[in-house]
Design a protein around this nucleic acid. Structure first.
Lengths: 104, 104
DNA sequence: AGCATTTATCACCTATTGATCATATGTTGA
DNA sequence: TCAACATATGATCAATAGGTGATAAATGCT
């Protein structure tokens, strides 16, 4: 699953789509307007994102609305856990804070 | 840069290499032993990882040692920030803890 | 100097990706 | 039912990815 997720995230257009969907849901047409590629290409990108369970599409009349899903991103976050100790700062302090919080 | 990073992370062999390097540095030969592909293929994977600044290689006699670098992963972590609020629990509590900590 | 060891690179092959244009499918509303 | 709109899909293409075996290049050892 991480394979598909990372592959989906490796394209800047797809990350752009996710960024837009992070604000609010968009129809396919609205997304097409934001990128200098054809509707066809956008549709394929949406297929990739859906396949990676990074988005969901649902009908809304003749349009289809795209919504961000966070599970796959949460999985990436989990994968990164193992590496987090390698960069200092915020995360270290955060983890410390959490552990302290749990103890109480 | 994120393009390259995510693309590098999308391959399971490369993630496997990173996992090994997270424990300790390895020579190329040691890495080759761990995967069912040729030395040639591993060498290419290492090129990809190095290109993505996910690893560094340095000479050690006739061998070359591979070391994990965390900057690119930290960049991914930063990119994920925008999406973290979407899955509840740990992160939310952590952020709260941090904000409280800063206030004092 | 010459051979063994370790790693990188070359030439090659096949599969996948991201784009295009043209067309099909699904939905609304007159 | 039919025209218009919104989206998906098929055919095609060039570029890239990931694998292979053979060979080159760098270092160590005697």
């Amino acid at each position: 699953m991480l394979d598909t997720t990372f592959a989906a995230l490796s394209d800047p257009t797809r990350r752009g789509i996710l960024a837009l969907l992070a604000e609010r849901e968009h129809s396919v047409g609205e997304l097409v307007e934001q990128f200098p590629i054809t509707q066809s290409a956008v549709s394929r990108h949406l297929n990739v994102l859906e396949q990676a369970t990074l988005i969901e599409r649902r009908r809304d009349g003749q349009r289809r609305l795209c919504v961000l899903r966070s599970e796959a991103l949460a999985e990436v976050d989990l994968w990164m856990e193992r590496y987090r100790r390698m960069w200092d700062g915020k995360m270290r302090r955060l983890d410390k804070a959490l552990r302290k919080g749990k103890k109480r």
